[in-house]
């Protein structure tokens, strides 16, 4: 039945959420429209900007090119689940280094940065630049983003 909705149970930020949606609903739209988790941003909806970066099973991925149905049985972490009490060190470093202006790409940048450090791709400034290139920032906060990630990476070593 092509138009039938399906029932899903998704684990998001450590909580189980039940959801009935059409199969074509992306994880991004489910987060924003169904769960009100609007920290995950829609910048292009076609895999070209990185604003919708979330973690699925700890890996950074794009929520706009992921179906909600695909992540059933996997764990999803969004910006809202990153540092629920205290700020995550990457969030704190972004704040300290003014690593954003308008703030719209910021949750995606931070989710990407947390993974970038975890992957071991934050060893040098050039490595950070390359491995953060999937997150576009039109305000041009890149130098400050690199500084923030460098600091957070050094602190985590």
């Amino acid at each position: 039945m092509p138009n039938a909705a399906i029932s899903l149970r998704l684990q998001i930020n450590g909580h189980l959420h039940d959801l009935t949606v059409e199969p074509r609903v992306t994880l991004l739209d489910a987060l924003r429209e169904q769960f009100g988790l609007t920290g995950t941003k829609k910048g292009c909806d076609q895999g070209q900007c990185g604003a919708c970066t979330v973690h699925v099973d700890g890996q950074r991925v794009l929520a706009c090119l992921t179906l909600a149905a695909q992540v059933e049985g996997r764990t999803v972490t969004t910006i809202e689940g990153l540092g629920e009490e205290a700020l995550h060190p990457v969030q704190a470093a972004f704040l300290e280094h003014d690593a954003f202006q308008c703030g719209y790409c910021t949750p995606g940048q931070i989710m990407s940065a947390v993974a970038c450090i975890r992957e071991g791709h934050a060893g040098t400034d050039d490595e950070i630049r390359e491995y953060m290139s999937g997150n576009l920032c039109r305000c041009g906060a890149y130098p400050n983003i690199v500084a923030a990630i460098r600091q957070a990476a050094e602190a985590s070593r």
Binding site: T38, G39, I79, E80, Q91, L95, G103, T106, P107
Partner: peptide, 16 residues
Amino acid sequence: ITRVDGLAKVRGAATY
């Protein structure tokens, strides 16, 4: 001074 709206923005709590 650090951006006063920064905390909301890094938490994804700034509602556009």
